[in-house]
């Protein structure tokens, strides 16, 4: 008889896997209520560390070529495919899904990364413009990432909802601090391992597990967060009020219904800023 070597589920901040600074953890159970793991219960300080890591990583990630970002996103799909069994097992244990259903969720998550990988160098072709102004000027509008996104992944999805929260944000050069589903956090935390082996620079995606209701105020109220995605938040109206203090862009709860739950160009664009540059034409 051989005893399993179980994994310690930790946070993912700045490309590293720290435990919560607070030293706290919470129990995650399977669909039948049996103990699965003790998971880091993130704190206010973890939120601040994560935002700081996201801010540091943002200019470099946005400054990478679109081609390069596309390759990195495709690499995520490759790494996820390679760890299929691990994710299928976690999804099944947490949700009680059949192997077929869990595999279908993984397919959707992997394909979403492939789909997003192809967008990086096409956003401005589709959603940018040369503007025919009535004067001797060269005038061009391009889309640039909003900056640091604070997000709450859907509570009812173990992996694909989480992936479709992250991908539309980072595809354009944003960095993100994402709070996982509280109960279904294991695949999201394992996903940090995929990111760590996918050439994604540290700090581009920062993953926190814990109580959304405890962390949301700290994340949405943080002055250095530019946009918030409240899809998985429990008090969206209250959080939108906090977001107004620094005019943050807000994806309201329920937005995924409008934007498409598997990502869309509109979703990508709502985490971007249109920038227009004028230059005179002449000799």
């Amino acid at each position: 008889m051989r005893l399993d070597v179980k994994k310690t589920y930790k946070l993912f901040i700045g490309g590293k896997f720290p435990r919560s600074e607070s030293g706290r953890s919470y129990q995650v159970s399977d669909s039948k209520g049996k103990h699965l793991a003790n998971v880091s219960l993130a704190s206010r300080k973890d939120v601040r560390d994560a935002v700081s890591a996201a801010r540091s990583a943002q200019p470099g990630w946005a400054g990478a070529s679109a081609y390069n970002r596309g390759q990195v996103l495709y690499r995520i799909a490759e790494m996820l495919e390679g760890r299929r069994d691990q994710f299928v097992a976690e999804i099944q244990a947490l949700t009680g899904k059949t192997a077929k259903q869990a595999n279908a969720e993984l397919d959707a998550a992997i394909d979403s990364w492939v789909w997003h990988a192809g967008w990086t160098d096409k956003i401005d072709t589709v959603a940018g413009s040369m503007n025919p102004v009535a004067g001797p000027f060269f005038n061009i509008s391009t889309n640039q990432p909003t900056g640091v996104v604070g997000a709450f992944a859907p509570q009812d999805s173990a992996l694909v909802g989480f992936v479709n929260t992250i991908a539309p944000a980072i595809v354009s050069g944003n960095t993100i601090v994402v709070v996982t589903s509280e109960k279904l956090s294991l695949p999201a935390l394992s996903f940090g391992e995929v990111l760590a082996t996918s050439d994604v620079p540290g700090g581009v995606v920062n993953i926190l597990s814990g109580k959304e209701s405890e962390l949301s105020g700290w994340l949405v109220g943080h002055m250095d967060v530019n946009a918030v995605d409240l899809e998985g938040a429990s008090k969206p109206a209250e959080l939108e009020l906090m977001a107004a203090d620094t005019v943050k862009r807000v994806l309201r709860k329920g937005s995924y219904e409008r934007l498409g739950s598997s990502g869309s160009l509109q979703h990508i664009l709502e985490l971007m800023e249109l920038k227009t540059v004028w230059h005179p034409k002449g000799h």
């Binding site: 503007n131 102004v133 009535a134 509008s141 227009t276 004028w278």
Partner: peptide
């Protein structure tokens, strides 16, 4: 400079 064709 401002123009209706140019986003602001």
């Amino acid at each position: 400079q401002f123009d209706p064709t140019s986003p602001f």
